[in-house]
Nucleic acid binder design. Structure first.
Lengths: 222, 222
DNA sequence: GCCTTTCTATAATGATCGATATAGAAATAG
DNA sequence: CTATTTCTATATCGATCATTATAGAAAGGC
């Protein structure tokens, strides 16, 4: 049960001194892999696709990342570390919950259409269907990643209630689900070449739903 | 250029008299294939998966449907013919645009969570990523299917304007995009096991956005 | 009854899948 | 320098992919 992992560096951490050093930049290779998984998905991306885009041979890929599934898991982490700020920075720096949600949706409109950086359209996490492809473990990983959005929204909404920004009677779960739904839907539209301004207009309409839902005379929820 | 298709019945139409008749129900087999494509997607569904679920051999599949891609195209048609009404019947029978959109979103909440029939969760069209998997032709097919939703919403909104239900100044495109976004987002939530009542609550919030956007004193768009 | 036609089942096609065995090349430790 | 360690490149593994050749089974037309 307490078998120690015998493989030299399956975890990816570079050994310090001995032996021939790796000839490629691990992070750069991971970035290319991430981009490919992002665009094509897990199942449609082959090892041959990956080695070509990463500029390395298959044995190097397996030595550095372990397996295709482990590489995807690392790509997910790389995706979050490098792209999360595009969508969440404004949310976390906003003074009010309304401004936070507004920023979240407007920044999503820009990021998901590839306007904030040279990145593929749509969200890698939202559009991933790796769970339905038979890879249950990776499926749970992306599902957990999707759940983070809902958690953050609910935390911010509860904070807004405790600060008196919105009524205590607000249905936090429903409102957070609504914002999550809109952002997820944006990914599908972005993949179909919807423009940034179109998604921004969607965000504006969504905020009208927010305003009506957070007005003092709230219609009691569901 | 005017090569006639030589294959006996690649189009699927049953020849009338001669020869041994087909031993399986073509529509029932197609229904099983549709279900499989719906759940797993095009790429992750193998011919072996299909023949097992359809209860036929591979040669029978190819004789009846031509190819895996042609089968998927037929599955898309079968999907629409058999599931469209779940989401659109109320929309088309509603007296006002508001009731139509409300019915569309509420019926979507029920259908996408598998509450209206014994069907998989989420929309086969919205969640399909066959385009990004390298099958451009099928990708255009599902993209066109997604565009139908937007078209219908815009047509109904324009009708509502001409009937005086909503102001002529309404940004029809933005409002239709908003509704489309919400419904698409619902599919992603439904796949992650969101409940019918959660999606119905989302629909309720979305309708508040509708009301604010269609109020006579409309804030001029974007 | 026989003959033609079309279906079905078995098995195999070449291609590609993810993953590795092997061996040579390149670096550090001593 | 030599020895050791770890990388990379070529080639290949069995499995599975979509597809089909082959042959036998079942129906209608005569």
């Amino acid at each position: 049960m307490q078998k120690t992992d015998q493989t030299p560096e399956a975890d990816g951490t570079a050994a310090r001194g001995r032996g021939r050093p790796r000839a490629f930049d691990r992070e750069a290779a991971l970035a290319q892999a991430t981009r490919l998984f992002w665009i094509k998905g897990f199942g449609a991306t082959s090892i041959a696709d990956l080695t070509q885009a990463m500029g390395i041979g298959a044995p190097s890929l397996y030595a550095a990342f372990g397996s295709k599934e482990a590489l995807y898991a690392e790509a997910l982490r790389h995706y979050r570390e490098n792209n999360e700020a595009l969508v969440w920075a404004g949310f976390f720096s906003a003074a009010t919950a309304r401004e936070a949600v507004m920023a979240f949706l407007m920044d999503s409109a820009a990021a998901l259409t590839g306007c904030l950086a040279d990145i593929p359209r749509g969200c890698m996490v939202a559009l991933s269907s790796v769970g339905g492809e038979g890879h249950a473990e990776l499926g749970e990983l992306v599902q957990a990643a999707r759940a983070v959005t809902l958690d953050r929204l609910k935390i911010r909404l509860n904070q807004a209630i405790s600060e008196g920004e919105i009524p205590a009677s607000t249905d936090v779960h429903a409102l957070a689900r609504f914002v999550q739904t809109v952002q997820n839907g944006m990914s599908i539209l972005a993949r179909d070449e919807a423009s940034r301004s179109e998604l921004e207009a969607v965000a504006q309409v969504a905020m009208l739903g927010w305003d009506a839902r957070t007005a003092q005379r709230t219609i009691s929820g569901t």
